[in-house]
Amino acid sequence: MTVLSYLKALNRAIADEMQRDPAVCVFGEDVRAAVTNVTAGLVKRFGDARVLDMPISEQAFTGIATGAAMSGMRPLIEYQIPALLFLAFEQIVNQAHKFSLMTGGQVSVPVTYLIPSSGSRDGWAGQHSDHPYSLFAHIGVKTAVPATPADAYGLLATAIRDDDPVVVFAPAGAMGRREDVDLSQLAPVPLGVGRVHRVGTDVTVVAIGHLVQAALEVAEELAETVDVEVFDPRTLHPFDWQGLAESLERTGRLVVIDDSNRSCGIGGEILATAAEEMHLVAPPKRVTRPDGAVLPFAEGLDRALQPTREQLRTAIQAVAKNGGAR
């Protein structure tokens, strides 16, 4: 077994895919110098024709990736800041995402958009701390938010091989994670297949990205009184509704912890779908950022707007007490 960090897993997935498929190339700002370390070593190994430093022109190079992808390449774009997705939103959702349908299936657009350190990353304030994965799930772009190093490797590899655009959010809160893995067992992880990290009988907690770890810790703290199941959807679009339904068949109770703003966040969609279609014996709850949150700079203010372990603990306890017998 080897200790694999989340960051190294991303790097390894890109390198393995570049080695496997000469059409895979990397676009981004400072990707040769690898200022985020995600692309470390790639230019030395694969050359500057496949690892392209871009000027500060997110709209153009995102559009260029679309054109290149229609013509046989498989670009991966690294955005250093989650909010850069807002600049490139038109090129991703209105161009890359729509070409397959608009052309009657004549073309596919295999581009991967990778955001290392999405969400709050300590002291980066209003314009560098967003976590906009729900926007992409809403619009219908395939969206992955891996929680562990092995899933980071597996979902990024799958995203690169996928024939559609895929956005991969690597939460800042997960980038420091490490786990023991057998490197020979690292493999692509399919989109739309969730993962039960902890089996439980009382309450299903759906946790997204870095919040999976928080949910596991809270579950252990509550183990004496509530048996919590932790369900990680891993991808938000497509979403493993079947996996969630199976978990709720066992528990009948649901709490979602989601680092989105509350209104129209994926947490709301999970609650709505469970309420409409699944087995619930008590009203579900969600723990999210507030409506319309803009993260303020000061540490205490930044933390005040993100979902916390304490909020999750309270929500689990409230849901566990409510409602009838399963």
Partner: peptide, 21 residues
């Protein structure tokens, strides 16, 4: 490679296709 309904949006797509060619 498609008509495009957002003014100017095809310019980078064309350039990407040219680079790939």
């Amino acid at each position: 490679l498609g008509a495009n309904a957002i003014v100017g949006a095809a310019a980078p797509i064309a350039t990407g296709a040219a680079w790939a060619a």
